[in-house]
Design a protein around this nucleic acid. Structure first.
Length: 582
RNA sequence: GCGCCCGUAGCUCAGCAGGAUAGAGCAUCGGAUUCCUAAUCCGGGGGCCACAGGUUCGAAUCCUGUCGGGCGCACCA
């Protein structure tokens, strides 16, 4: 199971073995924590291939100074044939240089593992449910949904690559008042399709043109049966039809971004199945729901019509929330939270860990839902690790001017517009080249204008160049050779070392749940590839294909082939195409 | 008033479970193209990492406070 191990982990294990040996020699006291011992590539490559802080971290518990402890560690490490030098530097770092065979073998490992190079067993097959997008089914996807959609999708891919069993899930809010409004808006368009002049769309209704085709379909299917009928006769019917149409639209929009969810969970079905009642009963049995009176809102004037009412409240303060939260409204219907609580319980039944991707405008409700999941551990329950990743707002601009994104305004930039204009890859990559917890600007015009400077092309160009050189070599009858790595020079070795960091980057990104790290790594790798390539411009002997040197060319082609493999593996996580030509 | 997020080069952003002289792109200045795709490369200039304390061998990174910006603070979704 654990035979897939990163090179860095392998050497960390060797250093750990040395520390155990030192414990046996009583140089180190037994049982000292090594949690802070790090083994990583130094920032400055001139320091070597690997560095460890072991001596600095352990000097104090060993009652010695870092340098003398380092000397003892170095003494052991020097016996390892894979380590050609171990030097003490600065305040007590130990810098290691590895035998070039180690790197040659790593290059062979990339070739052997192919699209699996970088996959990790870190996740150990645990089931992670990632819920993302979950946009209300009241209109097409717009740019406000885009960032969460892309980040969630890349995160799910990343966790899968890191060894988790991932479910991509979408929660369809098809039971609240917004979908009733949708149904009424659709009814207006239905009357319009029947020839009626409906004039201006009243405030509070969805004015978007996208409802016109639905009105038309409803008119074709039902004629004028419901034109003047009371709302009670058509509301549920129209709601169902409209939501289904909206979800088809949303699925199509998501497909344009390369996103496909495994599961769509319906709030209406959840309620019809009595899940909220079950949740309430369980929570009441554990004294986590009680009937109480909500406090008046603090910090600002209470609404005009505010009055104390007794409601079933979830004891979320017990788990760190600021106040207890109602799960039912005074009309007896479930609050959004009440249903969402039951929904998270449902997800927890078939997952070992949950992740929600939300927009920052929902930050205020994080504590209560975290409280709800934490409550599952009460009694005989199990602890479900649960993370809400907040994706900060995207300020959508058009030539520096703020562009409206409100779904209700009917004036918004849809994802379909954006993808058609700049392409899926640009949209995805630009959403992934910044950490999600910082706000970002997205200027519709600027992104189109500067798409040539967009980092995605830089990475794709690197891949295309590799494909180009391989095509060229094939024409000339030169094949990549896996058995000539010894002919590679220092520049090429440096490239292998960077490539070898990919598995480590995958694990680090997965642990931090930050897919953007993969994008930055690929950018760096692409830069190294371009630099290597351009050496051939200054010195023809350094070109990848050198006419008279078939074995060297073969070795370099093999290296190029493996760099291309890693770019493909990384881009696959991000959901960006590895194009073969630009 | 309270909660969450952010503050790093002129601009847009990285900074890897605290590590060794703080990095990249854009912009700017100077170079490379009879040659594997110049959508590329090489080099220069440009920083009190918002501010003030604290934790320790060591802080852009962790803690506290202040200032500045964003989002939120319903029985809505």
């Amino acid at each position: 199971m654990s035979d897939i191990q990163t090179l860095y982990a392998a050497f960390a294990a060797r250093i750990d073995a040395v520390l155990s040996a030192l414990e046996a020699e009583a140089v180190l006291p037994a049982g000292v924590s090594r949690a802070n011992v790090a083994v990583e590539p130094p920032r400055d490559p001139s320091h070597g291939d690997l560095a460890t802080n072991a001596a600095m971290v352990l000097a104090k518990p060993a009652a010695t100074n870092p340098r003398s402890l380092a000397e003892k560690i170095v003494e052991h490490l020097s016996r390892d044939p894979a380590i050609v030098s171990a030097e003490i530097a600065g305040p007590g770092f130990i810098n290691l240089r590895l035998d070039r065979k180690v790197w040659e073998e790593e290059l062979a490992a990339i070739a052997a593992l192919g699209s699996d190079y970088g996959r990790s067993v870190m996740g150990d097959g645990t089931r992670v449910n990632v819920e993302y997008v979950s946009a209300n089914p009241t209109g097409p996807m717009h740019m406000g949904h885009c960032r969460g959609a892309v980040v969630g999708d890349a995160l799910a891919n990343l966790l899968e690559y890191a060894g988790h069993a991932v479910t991509k899930e979408y929660y369809v809010n098809d039971a609240g008042s917004q979908v009733d409004t949708l149904a009424r808006s659709a009814h207006l368009r239905y009357r319009e399709a029947l020839g009626e002049d409906i004039g201006e769309i009243p405030a509070g209704m969805y004015p978007g043109e996208y409802l016109k085709p639905i009105g038309k379909l409803l008119a074709e299917e039902f004629g004028d049966t419901y034109r003047d009928a009371p709302e009670s006769e058509w509301l549920l019917l129209f709601r169902g039809k409209a939501v289904a149409a909206m979800m088809d639209q949303i699925r199509a929009d998501l497909a344009m971004l390369g996103i496909k969810h495994d599961v769509f969970s319906s709030e209406a079905e959840l309620q019809a199945a009595g899940k909220p009642e079950q949740a309430e009963a369980w929570l009441r049995a554990h004294d986590l729901v009680y009937d109480g009176v909500l406090e008046a809102p603090k910090g600002k004037a209470p609404p005009e019509d505010w009055e104390p009412v007794e409601l079933p409240l979830f004891r979320s303060t017990k788990f760190g929330d600021d106040q207890d939260r109602p799960i039912k409204k005074s009309d007896g219907k479930w609050t959004y939270f009440g249903a969402d609580l039951a929904y998270h319980m449902q997800k927890a039944e078939s997952a070992d860990a949950l992740i929600d991707i939300w927009g920052a405008d929902h930050a205020g409700t994080v504590k209560r839902i975290k409280a709800a999941v934490a409550a599952l551990a009460e009694g005989e329950g199990k602890v479900i690790p649960f993370d809400v990743k907040l994706v900060q707002m995207v300020q959508l601009l058009r030539n520096g001017e703020p562009a409206k994104m409100s779904k209700r305004s009917g004036n918004f930039v849809t994802i379909a517009d954006m993808v058609e204009e700049v392409g899926k890859d640009v949209v995805r990559f630009s959403m992934l080249t910044r950490k999600p917890d910082a706000q970002m600007d997205f200027d519709f015009v600027k992104v189109v204008e500067t798409s040539k400077d967009n980092p995605v092309f830089y990475v794709q160009y690197a891949h295309a160049r590799i494909c180009s050189i391989l095509r060229r070599a094939a024409e000339e009858g030169i094949a990549p050779r896996s058995d000539q790595a010894a002919l590679l020079g220092e520049d090429e070795l440096a490239l292998i070392k960077l490539a070898a960091q990919f598995p480590r980057e995958v694990e680090a990104a997965a642990r931090a749940r930050e897919p953007h790290r993969i994008a930055f790594y690929l950018y760096e790798l692409a830069g190294a590839l371009h630099g290597w390539w351009n050496m051939g411009n200054d010195d023809p002997q350094k070109r990848i294909i050198v006419a008279q040197k078939l074995t060297v060319s073969g070795a370099r082609l093999f290296l190029a082939l493996q760099i291309g493999q890693i770019i493909r593996n990384g881009l696959a996580i991000l959901g960006v195409e590895a194009v073969e030509e630009l």
